[in-house]
Design a protein around this nucleic acid. Structure first.
Length: 415
RNA sequence: GCGGAUGUAGCUCAGUUUGGUAGAGCUCCGGAUUGUGGCUCCGGUGGUCGCGAGUUCGAGCCUCGUCAUUCGCCCCA
């Protein structure tokens, strides 16, 4: 049996785990300041949940889901994203009955069957937030402020924040724009890349997102969605922009930003970093006022975002906070274990060398572990019921009564 | 799914040209007159050369396949 890790997955340990923990910790902190509660949903759902919510025509649903069959032949999917699930949970648990608005955040692994590369995995981790029940731009603003605060908290400065509106489903809004756009594209179809000329009819907005130079040249001249959306969407967007200006949020409006999931409406945004290679999106989100309705539930306006934890981990290095730890060395195993146990019971972080090696080796271990002080239990100390305490920073050594060593350490920690 | 690059010790990599006993640095372990770390010096452990076939007297090196990583396309987190 070959013990190999599955393609696009990885084991996280050592510094990787520290980075993840650091980011999660900061996220929890910021989310709780804004009144968000954690929600934990299953790692798999019925396939139809994602198919209906995210959209049958999207890449995620069309070719990237990990599908499995349960024992009765029902189709299940490992979750490719978080929003559909949180919405499902709000609906199945009837949460809006008792609340007119709700705030949730979540962490966890997501799964997409894609070609792995830098910052892109088949099992990847997201941090997400969803805000339900508020249709005014206050909610949009709040999520963007959370993002700003979070990035500040993890000391990530070199990111750019892009914003757009993609209108709503009303006939005089996105559908009208789509028609205008298709009409325009048809006149320039010869200049479009193969991919775009194929998808311009069923998904014309995606053409705006194409990186092909010739397509960019064409779409630069295309009608802009801002000029076509309905007055409601237009007001929503300009009000949001004013609010962002008012809060000194730096952002740029990118009319090419359209997002690949069907459920978005009005505001969409993405966060980019130049230090991520080809996968330069660290996070993204938007408003999805229509998703509850798609699921046959009463309409609830909502907005949310997701951040790629794996990608954030590539961009951040956790501040090193030293936890003062102690290392016990000695020749008498029993005495060493006893003192170690005593320290640990008193919540003093304590290690020892389990192999009873030479003093020299034990000190090497102590040094390697980054110990703050070494407690030395030699024959002389044992006889006198004392402990020599060596400070590993300055090398100074003092003798303390065995019975008083815990008190001594606790007092020293405070300094 | 499609292109390009790469795969040799725990890590970073040489060795491939011209096939002939597997290398370096760092890490790790041990020692430097026996109860004391870091620095220095000395020594040691560690590799089915990604995996599988083929050519050959002989393959880390040549050929084919395969898996993985990586950079792009695509898409997104």
């Amino acid at each position: 049996m070959k013990l190999k890790i599955v393609k696009g997955t990885r084991d996280l340990y050592g510094d990787d785990v520290k980075r993840f923990q650091y980011i999660e910790e900061k996220a929890r902190q910021v989310f709780s300041v804004y009144g968000y509660q954690e929600i934990r949903t299953p790692i798999f759902e019925k396939t139809e949940l994602f198919a209906h919510g995210v959209g049958e025509g999207t890449d995620i649903v069309g070719k990237e889901m990990f599908l499995l069959e349960d024992r009765r032949g029902r189709s299940m999917a490992l979750r490719p994203e978080g929003t559909a699930q949180v919405v499902r949970s709000v609906i199945t648990n009837n949460m809006m009955r008792q609340n007119n608005h709700l705030r949730f955040y979540y962490f966890g692994p997501m799964f997409r069957y894609e070609q792995p590369q830098k910052g892109r995995f088949r099992q990847f981790y997201q941090i997400g937030a969803e805000y339900f029940g508020v249709s005014t731009p206050d909610a949009d603003l709040e999520l963007i402020l959370i993002l700003r605060q979070f990035f500040k908290e993890i000391q990530l400065h070199e990111i750019s924040f892009q914003l757009n509106t993609i209108g709503c489903q009303k006939s005089d809004c996105r559908p009208a724009y789509k028609n205008k756009l298709i009409e325009f594209l048809q006149d320039h179809v010869d200049s479009l890349c193969e991919n775009c000329s194929n998808r311009m009819h069923d998904n014309p907005l995606r053409v705006l997102d194409c990186k092909n130079e010739s397509c960019i040249a064409v779409t630069s001249e295309a009608p802009k969605i801002h000029d076509t959306v309905c007055s409601d969407c237009k007001d929503h967007f300009s009000e949001l922009c004013h609010m962002l200006d008012d809060h000194q949020v730096s952002y740029s409006v990118n009319f090419r930003l359209v997002r690949g999931l069907d459920y978005y409406s009005k505001t969409v945004f993405e966060v980019f970093s130049d230090n991520l290679g080809a996968q330069n999106a660290a996070g993204g989100g938007g408003r999805y006022d229509g998703l509850f309705e798609i699921y046959g539930a009463k309409v609830v306006p909502a907005i949310g975002f997701a951040l790629g934890l794996d990608r954030l981990a590539l961009l951040t290095s956790p501040e090193k906070k030293e936890q003062k730890s102690v290392f016990v060395v000695g020749t008498d195993r029993g005495a060493v274990c006893k003192l170690v146990a005593t320290c640990r019971e008193e919540d003093i972080i304590c290690q020892y060398d389990p192999f009873q090696s030479s003093m020299k080796s034990q000190f090497r271990q102590a040094n390697k572990s980054g110990a703050w002080k070494v407690l030395i239990l030699g024959e002389e100390e044992l006889k006198a019921k004392q402990v020599s305490v060596k400070d590993m920073q300055d090398g100074q050594q003092t003798v303390v009564e065995l019975s008083a060593v815990v008190g001594y350490l606790k007092k020293s920690v405070a300094n």
